[in-house]
Design a protein around this nucleic acid. Sequence first.
DNA 1: GGAGTCGGAGAACGGTTGTTTACTCGGTGG
DNA 2: CCACCGAGTAAACAACCGTTCTCCGACTCC
Lengths: 229, 229
Amino acid sequence: MSHTAETTQVRAPGVRQAQKLRTRRALLDAALALLEEQSLSSLGLREVTRAAGVTPAAFYRHFRDTADLGVALVDEALGSLHTTIRTALAATVRDGTGPEDGGGGEDGGDERIDAAVELIDALVREYPAHVRFIAREQHGGVTAVRAAISGQLALFGAEVADTLAAVPEAAGWSRADLLMLAGLYVDHMVMTASALLAAGPEGGTRAEVARVARRRMRLISLGRRHWLD
Amino acid sequence: MSHTAETTQVRAPGVRQAQKLRTRRALLDAALALLEEQSLSSLGLREVTRAAGVTPAAFYRHFRDTADLGVALVDEALGSLHTTIRTALAATVRDGTGPEDGGGGEDGGDERIDAAVELIDALVREYPAHVRFIAREQHGGVTAVRAAISGQLALFGAEVADTLAAVPEAAGWSRADLLMLAGLYVDHMVMTASALLAAGPEGGTRAEVARVARRRMRLISLGRRHWLD
DNA sequence: GGAGTCGGAGAACGGTTGTTTACTCGGTGG
DNA sequence: CCACCGAGTAAACAACCGTTCTCCGACTCC
């Protein structure tokens, strides 16, 4: 992962700062684990340090309070998922079945949707704690964290709108409408991720959730296709 | 204070139970007020009793713990909004512009959508604390409350699906697809309510949020209209 | 009208919280 | 090589937490 050069490490390596980042990592991981069964506003400072194996006072070397830690968690969670989500959305966006040559071309759109939902599913499986944290604190009790999340999601929305604008089907769409559709996609993605998380790793309910998510996306894409009528 | 029964106050009322319900009311109201700036899992028992003007020990006469109180709040919030939401959804459902006689009939659908969003807006203005509570605890840290909310919302969804099935445009729709669409409506309603709440009572941003919500609904209705193609 | 019920008050308990202080001690830079 | 810096420790602080106990007094039922 990190670039800890062993031999000719020079300049700015810092064994010092490396250790600092390690405990910071421990604090973030411990907090994320604890947040699977409670929300941020009830997360105790001592609770985190205890789980991380450090002293309560050490916490202040990294964060002002638990809310500050929460904001850091938002950046980490949505930052790491940034490229992944971008890929997913780019795939979803192009569902217009391309030029309407002949019929039966609709499978292309459905395949894109299937791939997108599958990607969300894989994402939830790989980073369940991050997804849970975002879904929970999106409307949570800590103002700063809420603001951070909505800011990041708005960023995603704008990015999706840009991607949407690039495809030929978007001809004639206003910027406002593109943002509207992009926001709908993003919100639906968060909702789907949360639903998948709540369904658990079992096959039965989870498969049904994915099925419904696909149909919802298909309906939205259908509406998108006929928007300019 | 109050003397006994005034004249022919009889049978089952009970001055006793009336007072009990009064303090229960005080506890619920105090909790709801406190929950505007934090989440349920961080809500303290003593905090609630202090705000309600009663002793901590009195709390146990009404609820086992704060999670139990949260479930009661869910029933109250979604129970009271039940009829209102039902009305709103019944209005939204019929957006198919009726029989497709000639063109230009689409305004009917848009008017329904406008009315529905307006109703949500009014609902948020009248019960902001309830709406905030539901939106926040829907993915919150208390399992029992989460289950209660999702159960109530699933009930709403089924009800909306029934209403949808009654309109002529639903011919040929499977029950699963009706539930899918109903869930999409319900989720979108909660999202819109939360967004309106976050926008605050000011005219500028709030009006924009309502505008986007209307467009989203219009797009969904469009997809619904072309679902069976 | 008297016995009984019960919602609420009051006080006490052990435990945990966030925060601050003084201190250690190993990596860092001149 | 040595002085310094700073991440982390240990201890102490008052405040608050959830829970339990005993007790009071007003309502209820017969």
